[in-house]
Design a protein around this nucleic acid. Structure first.
Lengths: 142, 142
DNA sequence: TATATTCTGAGACTCAATCTCAATAAGAAT
DNA sequence: ATTCTTATTGAGATTGAGTCTCAGAATATA
């Protein structure tokens, strides 16, 4: 299984045990390139016949986020979304406020301007959130 | 009172009544240039001897945000912050992940790149969130 | 001042996320 | 393979920001 090794490695690094539940959460996150919330991950795993609790889904996602295998997106609607980082390069997001569709963008100019701004303040950049809330073409003219 | 007129105007526009409670929320928001959460606004008003409920604070802030008199900031920690927009020009935020200090920045290059990105997708930009999470100089070398 | 209507406050409620703790499972040692 | 220690799990309780409810209070209009 392609997703097996990185999970085992991360768990070992954290001194945690390898379990079927943790594997199922990681597998489900890797199953699509969507940006899903914890409840959707939870339901998808149960749909597939495996038993797992919400608490375990949240706890496992925390481990994965901490180990940079999964990225947590806060869209300001009180429900975090998650995306796996397998083969992913850095990007930020466009979010349609009508249909909720999420697309990705990346702009070198913006990235370097950010660094310059932070440098000018004399600070150290840790991470950034850059979200463009839009109305997509389908929603604009259906 | 400097903050009296815009409030009355907004309330009239929304078909809402002018009340002491609404005035007190707006006054308190204008009292500082900080980025405070609803609980802080609520406590500050009570501190000053006026009686107001949490519900009214939230309800009034909603009206003010809707009328662009107040800006709501979602920092991803589950507690929205608010800043009044008296004399304010557009800006985004630097947030120290250590001490919570919030500073403001604005970059024309980034602003126009955003427009170009959205145009390239064929979408319509409604609003954006751009937050730089940093470690400030005081926290870096105390 | 009377009347109709909106607003307020106290607390119930919601919902995502976290915590609790007894039962279960993993992994190490034998 | 079995035992033993310790981490993990699941069900449900809890948290906390924010919203809702509705009877009583306050506001605007006549």
């Amino acid at each position: 299984m392609a997703t097996y090794d990185p999970l085992k490695r991360a768990l070992k690094k954290e001194g945690l045990r390898y379990t079927q539940q943790r594997q199922s959460v990681w597998d489900e996150l890797c199953a699509t390139n969507d940006h899903r919330d914890a409840e959707e991950i939870y339901l998808a795993i149960r749909q597939s016949g495996l038993n797992v609790s919400r608490a375990t889904v949240y706890r496992t996602i925390d481990v994965l986020v901490k180990n940079k295998m999964v990225r947590k997106l806060e869209l300001g609607d009180g429900r975090a979304r998650y995306e796996h980082k397998i083969n992913a390069t850095h990007h930020d997001h466009l979010i349609c406020i009508q249909c909720g569709k999420i697309e990705e963008f990346m702009d070198e100019v913006i990235e370097s301007r950010q660094d310059e701004i932070v440098k000018k303040f004399g600070y150290k950049l840790v991470r950034h959130i850059h979200q463009l809330f839009i109305i997509c073409s389908e929603c604009e003219s259906p």
